[in-house]
Write a protein that binds this DNA or RNA. Structure first.
Lengths: 347, 347
DNA sequence: CGGCGATCTGTAAACGTTTACGGCCGGATG
DNA sequence: CATCCGGCCGTAAACGTTTACAGATCGCCG
């Protein structure tokens, strides 16, 4: 394999030193004549700088990593979709780490920061930020943005920013809406309680009920996984235990899909008999029938905010940690509104 | 910012040379005693090797890039989802390039290979492989896998493999199915003709009709974009021009979504009045109502095959180009089968 | 006890850049 | 004409590894 040209090759051909070549290529002030000779040689040789050598010298790789649980999850896809163009615009490449939600993998990525193969990291730890995460972040000495919640007491020097959403408010919005359309027996299909979203949504459900003056009833709560089939199982269990349920609050859109499957299978009308609300407001929500009312936790906004914070730190140097909070909102669709309203909604 | 420890730091602390440190860390035969001293020092200092320096010396980055039109497209998500774990397993990191389908961006990525920031590339060019693509691939001198079609006459030394699917057969399967359930006026909602899939599917539609003994009728064809709203527009146009259409073949699932929107809006029963078939068999297909019969072009398989070919080349050195062909199949769901059949389908 | 071979270790070069520093040359100034 | 200053340029070091090569050390044998 013929090795490509280097600045040394160019220097020889142009009859100058490698320093001059480098200066010309980097646009530093140089005599007109030298510039021409170097440019000519570089063109003829089809020179392309070696990014690895440059990185070694410059101590920066122009690469940023994004680590999340599962690239198949529409929430993360939405984030990547926002992050990628922002990074590209700023001259960074994007690396993807799908951690399967394994804490071990997350820690691996964080520790890997010390290998210096990226200049920064955006990470969304599924089960929250443990002490080990914190240690790794501090040791990394490379900026990190955590999407999700972060302990109050981060050590001083940690180069970390935080983007979070307020799923409590999100759940509250949904329950208020259900209450407003007359629902009183509102079931809750949640994900695992040892995940951050799961725990937060469980608490939020309870609080929101209370605020509405509705009783909390354990029988109305079912815990499963954040997947469609798990959602179906949970819905089936809940419906057979409490047939009179008139609404289902689902901790994520996939769970809601499973619930819709079961309701259809059992011939219950949505939203006539049972109203359904999902969470995350993914692309899927506008595709189901009926279309799915869903709490938007602003995935796109969170992605943008994370990229923004990271780039700011990389470009403007150290500053104290910041927190960006994205406000949830409720997108009302067919699964909670009686026919007559247009289902619509473009992609 | 305190600089991290390097092998020099370790060498000093352990009282040996950097060569010994490197040998120990790479597991080369070394005296027991030296090994212990080095390991100890490395542990105490929390040493982590600098991957950039290593890459410069080794001439490999352990990184692989995947370039596709849009990370928001479920087809590519499915591919990434398969590619990522295979690469990780083999010790490679994954970089993502979303090119927006701009040929300029695709070429940028290909040319970027010469910067040597990745060891190989998987690319899925939306508008086909032009002469410029070929040039860049040859110049790259790094292995490339093209997902999609590749010219017959690639130059000798090109380090390129190819993964393709057979959308002709895919379209044929769909039309045969529609014919079998008695449909005779089968409309076709296509994407842009200057994209590879668009052109191939247009030809395939024509051929398949012929094979079935059905006439080709221009009025039954509508060309738009590969998006939902564009699909809706196209469906609306087609339905008003030819009200008697009894089936719609859609060049992609998103287009099919748009068609379903319009059919519902016009009160036409699916599949009673109009049967609908999508293409790509994305996650969306099992979510719609009715669920969507769709031609699976094996996105997951294509992703796996591409990763496999690339890794093989990286691990086993040069060999002649290979082509992997993934066979399409038809997933029959509610949009072409009369009620009674279970819609079902887990995620 | 000298010499030989086998092991292990250290020196130094290399990967391809960027950049501090000092040298050289030209012109302007006293 | 000597001096100084400024603009360009080349030499060399640095980034942190890996590895070829040669030197050192040791045991063993003759």
């Amino acid at each position: 394999m013929t090795e490509g040209p280097t600045i040394t090759t160019i220097a020889q051909r142009a009859g100058v030193s490698i320093a001059s070549v480098s200066r010309v290529l980097n646009g530093l002030p140089t005599r007109e004549d030298t510039v021409r000779r170097v440019m000519r040689a570089a063109d003829e040789l089809g020179y392309v700088p070696n990014s690895v050598a440059r990185s070694l010298r410059n101590r920066r790789t122009d690469q940023i990593a994004f680590a999340m649980a599962d690239i198949g999850n529409p929430v993360y896809v939405a984030m990547v979709r926002e992050i990628q163009p922002l990074l590209k615009e700023a001259g960074y490449r994007l690396l993807i780490h799908s951690t399967d939600g394994q804490a071990e993998d997350e820690l691996g990525v964080l520790r890997g920061l010390r290998e210096r193969y990226v200049d920064g990291l955006i990470i969304s730890p599924l089960r929250g930020v443990t002490e080990e995460h914190v240690e790794a972040i501090v040791a990394a000495r490379a900026p990190v943005v955590v999407i999700g919640s972060l302990p109050e007491d981060m050590p001083e020097g940690a180069l970390v920013d935080n983007v979070r959403t307020d799923s409590r408010t999100g759940v509250r919005l949904a329950l208020e809406h259900l209450h407003a359309i007359g629902r009183r027996r509102i079931g809750f299909l949640n994900g695992p309680l040892d995940t951050v979203p799961g725990a937060a949504r469980a608490a939020a459900y309870r609080e929101a009920l209370e605020a509405l003056g509705l009783p909390y009833d354990e029988d109305l709560v079912e815990v499963g996984d954040f997947y469609r089939d798990s959602g179906a199982r949970a819905a089936r269990a809940l419906l057979s235990r409490v047939p009179g349920v008139d609404a289902l609050m689902c901790a994520n859109d996939l769970i809601a899909l499973g619930a819709l499957d079961v309701l259809r299978e059992q011939g219950r009308d949505v939203p006539g008999d049972v109203a359904v609300v999902g969470m995350d407001d993914t692309d899927l929500a506008s595709v189901t029938w009926p279309t799915l009312t869903s709490v938007s936790l602003g995935s796109a906004e969170r992605g943008r905010a994370a990229a923004g914070l990271l780039l700011d730190r990389l470009q403007n140097g150290p500053r104290e940690p910041r927190v960006a909070v994205v406000r949830p909102s409720l997108t009302i669709r067919g699964s909670t509104t009686l026919p007559g309203t247009s289902p619509g909604g473009a992609r």
